[in-house]
């Protein structure tokens, strides 16, 4: 019994004296269970001044941009060559900027008069662009002015394309600020929010110019589905336009 007591007392004392080691052991178990979270955070805190800075991010973005630009240039060259083979309308050459000097976007006629004409190389039929996309086409020219028939004009008809569903349609002006897109088939599978661009097969306007966004779809229209399109170019706000020369 006495011998037993002698054996137990030193063991208890040793345990009590070794409490720092016990704490260390507990800490190590905590590290193990937390998968070293504390260490990672501490490391992050200490090494923060040496992290890759914004300059490095900029460098990578610049390289990415350079890569994108060279790819875009290459694709445009390819596209031009292929469109030439197919005898389709190209994206056109240089653009001539012209100010809007008269705006009649409401009322009986939907037209703009711009301050550029024959002297600047403009002629009827050329596409007119504004920030946001296609605005219309030149209808008539004088030496120093040109009248632009807007896409909303009742006489305007442009072949367009919904990229998501790859469906063609005819964008027809009806005298309101939102033209109607008439599809060639009954179920084109479009929905509000789809982006409308000029048709890649168009012979009148350059391909793939943004036109607008589908606002509503009428599946019950006869003979085929119709959609109302919100134009992306703000006719009422635009002060300058670009006319794309061939």
């Amino acid at each position: 019994m006495q011998a037993g007591r002698r054996l137990r007392l030193p063991a208890l004392r040793v345990v009590l004296q070794a409490w720092p080691w016990g704490l260390l052991l507990l800490a190590l178990v905590g590290v193990r269970l937390s998968k070293g979270a504390g260490f990672s955070d501490a490391y992050a805190l200490v090494s923060r001044p040496f992290w890759p800075g914004s300059a490095q991010g900029e460098w990578i973005r610049s390289a990415q941009s350079l890569n994108d630009q060279s790819r875009l240039r290459q694709l445009e060259v390819d596209n031009r060559r292929l469109r030439g083979l197919l005898e389709l309308q190209g994206r056109g050459g240089r653009e001539v900027a012209a100010p809007v000097i008269s705006r009649q976007a409401g009322g009986w006629w939907q037209q703009l008069v711009i301050g550029g004409g024959e002297l600047q190389g403009l002629r009827p039929g050329l596409p007119v662009l504004a920030p946001g996309g296609l605005l219309g086409r030149v209808a008539s020219v004088t030496p120093t002015t040109a009248t632009v028939a807007l896409l909303t004009d009742p006489g305007s008809r442009v072949g367009v394309w919904v990229g998501r569903t790859q469906r063609h349609g005819l964008l027809t002006g009806i005298g309101t600020s939102r033209p109607v897109l008439r599809f060639l088939e009954k179920d084109p599978g479009v929905r509000p929010g789809d982006v409308v661009v000029t048709s890649p097969a168009s012979t009148l306007v350059p391909p793939n110019l943004t036109v607008g966004v589908i606002q509503s779809v009428d599946d019950r229209a006869v003979p085929a589905t119709e959609a109302v399109v919100q134009l992306s170019a703000p006719v009422e706000a635009v002060d300058w336009v670009q006319v794309r020369l061939p």
Binding site: G107, W108, P154, G155, T172, I174, G175
Partner: peptide, 21 residues
């Protein structure tokens, strides 16, 4: 005139937009 001449978008001259103008 819009209705008689059958302009390219005759429906443009039917009530909704034309009536508003």
């Amino acid at each position: 005139q819009g209705l008689l001449l059958g302009w390219s978008a005759a429906e443009a001259w039917l009530p909704a937009p034309a009536l508003h103008t």
